[in-house]
Write a protein that binds this DNA or RNA. Structure first.
Length: 354
DNA sequence: AACACGGGGTC
DNA sequence: GACCCAGTGTT
């Protein structure tokens, strides 16, 4: 599984990666360092002009170390996270004073510089010196969380440790620079936060999240209340004046309340295409029906979840073979408890809205 | 372990 | 409006 991952990633990089950036492939630790500081929590497109400006103004680390603070901050203006600028300047002067103007070439020494943490140290160590340190940035967290189906929060201590160890295991021996560059490019181009290119992904065959349909839910971050979105499609199936419902049980919301035939999907569905969904057809197998209508979308906000519901009105042509649900006369529905979403729906329907 | 730190792009 | 971006330093 791990060899597959690394092999596919490297071959994708070789065959399909067309991403170019001024600092890519170079060995000059000063330029690599500068690019990495600028790119912390910053998009490449946003940082690019700043990188060009800094390289032009300060071609070497000695130039930067000798520059007046105000001038350097002026160059940084508009980029944000200004502590980066302050630390960068301090590091430049550290390099001059402690390392005689020569960029340090061990991981520990690199990380001892101000503004350089584990990520930036690994990036410089690998790109400039091909040292075997795997980078762990937002891209790597996302790719590994999805590919291995890891739900450990990436912003927890345990998560950082777990992902760091895994990233290190996956690092291609002797190819640290190329591998680290490849995995970050892959995250930016293929395994994007939104709308990842799963159909074209060379890792798709073994991607746990893709198989489990949890790609959009990964990676998990613990900070802030994560409000999960869920998409319910309720099939209001009627036959001879009776409606199929069941009582909700189990470890989930709305325990002991009733509901119609539920089809939950991991993502919103085009209700018009519902009849071609495998889950829908398998649910209604051998139940001839007529489609009477589809309701508008209902939204309900719970503490930790947002529930989006839509109701599909069907009339069975013959006795349906639906298990786990009971047939209740429409007039008796008022004897059962339903979640607000469903009572809203029933209210609307009684008003003739559907 | 939790929080502050910026501006911009995307959906 | 929420999320995220080639994270790090401070409390």
């Amino acid at each position: 599984m791990k060899a597959f991952f690394t092999d596919k990633l490297l071959s994708w990089n070789q065959l399909h990666n067309t991403r170019t950036m001024p600092w890519k492939g170079i060995r000059d630790p000063y330029r690599i360092w500068l690019s990495e500081i600028i790119l912390q929590q910053t998009r490449v497109e946003q940082g690019l002009p700043y990188y060009e400006r800094f390289i032009t103004a300060y071609p070497t680390v000695k130039d930067l170390a000798a520059a007046p603070d105000e001038e350097v901050f002026r160059h940084w203006q508009g980029l944000g996270y200004y502590a980066r600028c302050k630390n960068m300047l301090a590091a430049a002067r550290q390099i001059v004073s402690e390392f005689n103007g020569r960029f340090p070439d061990t991981f520990e020494q690199i990380q001892s510089l101000k503004g350089i943490g584990p990520y930036t140290a690994a990036a410089i160590a690998s790109f400039a010196f091909n040292l075997p340190h795997a980078v762990l940035d937002g891209n790597v967290f996302r790719i590994l969380a999805r590919y291995f189906g890891i739900t450990t929060p990436t912003d927890s201590t345990a998560g950082k440790k777990q992902f760091a160890a895994l990233a290190q295991e996956l690092l291609a021996p002797g190819q640290s620079a190329i591998y680290n560059q490849a995995i970050m490019d892959f995250g930016a181009v293929m395994c994007r936060p939104q709308q990842p290119a799963c159909p074209q992904c060379p890792l798709a065959a073994k991607c746990v999240a893709l198989q489990q349909q949890t790609v959009a839910q990964l990676p998990v971050k613990s900070k802030k209340l994560v409000i999960k979105k869920r998409y319910f499609y309720y099939i209001v199936l009627e036959y001879k004046g009776q409606v199929f419902i069941r009582k909700r049980t189990g470890n989930d919301i709305w325990q002991n309340l009733h509901e119609f035939i539920l089809m939950e999907t991991p993502a919103p569905l085009d209700a018009g295409k519902l009849e071609s969904e495998p889950a829908f057809t398998s649910l209604l197998q051998q139940t001839p029906y007529t489609l009477d209508g589809i309701s508008a979308a209902f939204k309900q906000q719970l503490t930790h979840q947002t529930i989006y519901s839509q109701f599909i009105l069907l009339t069975a042509v013959k006795q349906p073979a639906i298990t786990d649900y009971m047939a209740v006369p429409r007039a008796r529905l008022e004897q059962y408890a339903f979640p607000k979403t469903i009572t809203d729906f029933l209210q609307n329907r009684s008003l003739g809205l559907f």
